[in-house]
Amino acid sequence: MSRTKLRAELMQELEHAVRRASAQGVIFGQTVADRAGISNSDMDCLDFLLLEGRVTAGRLAEITGLTTGAITGVVDRLEKAGFVRRERDADDRRKVFITPIPENIAKFGKLYEHMQRAMLKAWEAYSDAELRLLLRFATQSYHTMLAATAELKAMIEAPKEKRAKEPAKERAKATKPVRAP
Rank of each mutant, 00 (worst) to 15 (best):
Met145Thr: 04
His114Arg: 13
Gly37Thr: 13
Leu66Gln: 06
Glu166Lys: 00
Ala180Asp: 07
Arg88His: 07
Leu49Glu: 07
Thr31Lys: 07
Leu60Tyr: 07
Arg94Ile: 10
Leu135Ile: 01
Ser41Arg: 15
Leu10Asp: 02
Leu131Trp: 04
Phe83Pro: 11
Glu166Cys: 00
Leu146Ile: 05
Ala106Tyr: 14
Arg136Met: 01
Gly29Pro: 00
Ala148Leu: 10
Ile98Ser: 06
Thr149Cys: 02
Lys176Asp: 05
Pro100Gly: 10
Met119His: 05
Gln140Cys: 05
Phe48Glu: 12
Ser141Ile: 00
Pro159Glu: 02
Pro100Ala: 14
Ala147Val: 13
Arg179Ala: 11
Phe83Met: 08
Val84Asp: 14
Ile27Asn: 08
Lys169Trp: 08
Arg7Val: 11
Ala57Pro: 04
Ala148Arg: 00
Arg117Val: 15
Ile101Trp: 11
Ser127His: 04
Ile27Gly: 04
Val26Cys: 09
Thr175Leu: 04
Ala61Asn: 09
Gly65His: 01
Phe97Ala: 05
Gly53Ala: 10
Thr144Met: 02
Val84Tyr: 13
Thr139Lys: 01
Phe28Asp: 12
Leu131Cys: 02
Arg20Leu: 11
Met115Lys: 05
Ala174Asp: 11
Met115Gly: 01
Gln30Met: 15
Asp91Ala: 08
Val32Pro: 11
Arg59Pro: 00
Thr4Glu: 15
Val26Gly: 07
